[in-house]
Simulated scan of single mutants.
Amino acid sequence: MSKPLFYISLLPFIMVLGNSMMIPILPDMQSELHLTEKESGYILSFFSFPAAIIIPFIGFLSDRFGRKILILLSLFFVIGGSVLCAVSIWFPHPFIWLLIGRVIQGIGAAGTTPLAMAIIGDAVDRTRQGEAFGLLEVFNGVGKVVAPIVGATAAAIYNWNLAFVFVIIVTVLSLVGIFKTIPNKKSGNQVNSIRNYLQDLIYVLKSKWLEIFPLFYMGAVGLFLLFGILFYLSYYIEMTYHIDGFFKGTAFMFPLAAMTIVSYWTGKQLKNSGNFQSLTLIGISVMMVSFAGMEWNHSFHFFLFFLTIAFAGLGFILPCMNTAITSQVSDGERGFIVGLYGTARFIGVALGPTIFSIWIDDVGYMIRIVFILSFSMLLAFIFHQLIMKETQPYLQK
C-alpha cells in the first residue's frame, strides 16, 4: 500500500470515528453535563445532520475548487470542531459549545469518504481501483470495530473529552500526509453553475424517484436501526451492569465486527442482479428473525447475541444498496444519486439516537417497532423489484 493511498484511506476512518466513538461514552457525558437521554442523543445528531445537508454538494464543490483543497478544508473543519468539543467542558454552558463543535465536525466529515472515493476515481488506474476501493472499506470496517473501544477506553483513562484528542491526532496525520503526497487536480468534468447543478438535481429526482426511493429508504432505515440500537445498548450496559471503559467498548465489537465481515464478503459476491436480490432478501430475513428473537428474550446475553446476528443481516443489505444505486443510473446521474443516498443514510444516523432516546425506558415497545421497521424494508424491496420489472431491466451483467 502506497503512502498516498494510506492517507486517503484514513478519511473514511475519520468519518466513522465522528459518531461511533461517541456511543459508549454518552452515559458519561450525560452524567457530567447533566443531560437527559434525548439531549445526549443530540451529540450524535448534531454531527450527522450537517453532513447530510452538505454531502450532495461535495462533488460540485470539488469539481470547482479541486479535490485536494476541499479535502484539506474538510479536515481543518474536523480538527477545529474536535478541539472545540475537547475544551468545551472548560467553558460556561459546555453543552452548547459541545454541540457547536459537533456541527463543525459534521461539516468537515461530509467531505471525507465522498472525496476519498472521488480522488481514487481520478488518480488511480482503473485496473487498481477495485483494490483501492476495497481498502477504503477495510478502513471503514476497522473504524466501526475499533472506535467504540477507543472511546470507552479514553473515557476510562481520563475523561470523555480525551476521545476527541484521538480524533485530532488521526485527522492531523491524514491532513499532513495528503498535503505532502496528493497533487491538486480538478475532476476534468465541465463545471456547472450552482443553479444548473440544482436544476439537474431536481430533474434526476423527478425522473428516478420511483426506482431510487425504496433503496434510499432501506439504506436510511438500516443506519437508523444501527445507531439507534447501539445508542440504547450503551445505556443498557451502563444502567444494568455498571460496566465502563475497555470492557464496555468490547461489547460493541461483536455486532459491528459481524456487520463488517459480512459486508466485505457480500461485496465480493455482488456480480449480477440475481446475487443482489437473493443477498438482500437473506439480509432482511436475518434481521426480522433476529428482532423477533429479541422480543422472545431480551436479557443482555440474548439481546447481544440477536443483535450480532441482526447486524450481520445488515451487512448483507448495505453493500447491495450501494451496488444497486451506482449500477442502475447513468454516469451523468451517478454523482447526484450517490450524494443524495449519502444524505439519506446520514439522516438515518442522525434520527436514530434521538428517536431511540424516547423508547429507552420501554424495551419491549422498542423491539416491536424495530421489527416493524425491518418488515417495512422487505416491503420496500418488493416494491422496488416490481417497479424495476415495469420500467427497465435491472443490473446489467
Rank of each mutant, 00 (worst) to 15 (best):
W160C: 04
F231H: 12
S234M: 09
I194H: 03
F166P: 01
I194C: 05
A257C: 08
N159P: 00
T240N: 15
M259G: 01
F246L: 12
F179Y: 14
F252A: 09
A156G: 00
F164T: 07
F166E: 05
L226N: 13
Y158W: 10
P255E: 09
L223H: 03
E238F: 14
V204M: 09
T181S: 10
F213K: 06
I168H: 02
L201R: 04
L256N: 05
A220F: 00
N189G: 06
G188M: 10
P183M: 05
M259V: 02
N159W: 11
E211I: 13
A257I: 07
K208E: 06
N161P: 06
K186M: 08
F213S: 15
F231V: 09
V172M: 10
S234R: 11
V172H: 03
I194Q: 04
F216T: 06
T171L: 03
S174F: 05
Y197K: 12
A155N: 12
G188Y: 12
N161T: 12
Y236T: 11
L225N: 05
L198P: 06
T181E: 06
P255T: 05
T171P: 00
L225H: 03
I157F: 11
F166H: 07
G219Y: 00
I178H: 12
I157G: 02
I182L: 09
I261V: 14
I261Y: 04
K208P: 00
L210Y: 13
L225E: 04
W160F: 14
T181A: 05
I157Q: 02
F166L: 07
A155C: 03
S187C: 04
L230I: 01
N159K: 10
I157E: 00
T171M: 05
F179I: 02
N196Q: 15
L233P: 02
A156N: 04
Y217P: 00
L173A: 10
L205H: 02
A220W: 01
G177I: 14
K180L: 12
D244H: 15
F166D: 02
V165A: 11
G228R: 13
G188K: 13
V176K: 10
P183Q: 07
M253H: 01
I237Y: 01
I194V: 13
A258T: 09
N184L: 07
R195I: 15
H242I: 11
I237E: 01
L175P: 04
F252I: 07
A257T: 03
G219D: 02
I168A: 05
T181R: 01
T250G: 04
Y232R: 08
L205V: 03
Q190E: 14
I212M: 13
A163P: 02
Q190I: 11
N196W: 12
K180H: 09
Y232F: 14
F254A: 13
I261G: 07
V191W: 05
A257P: 02
T250P: 02
L201W: 01
L215I: 14
G245A: 06
S193M: 06
S193H: 11
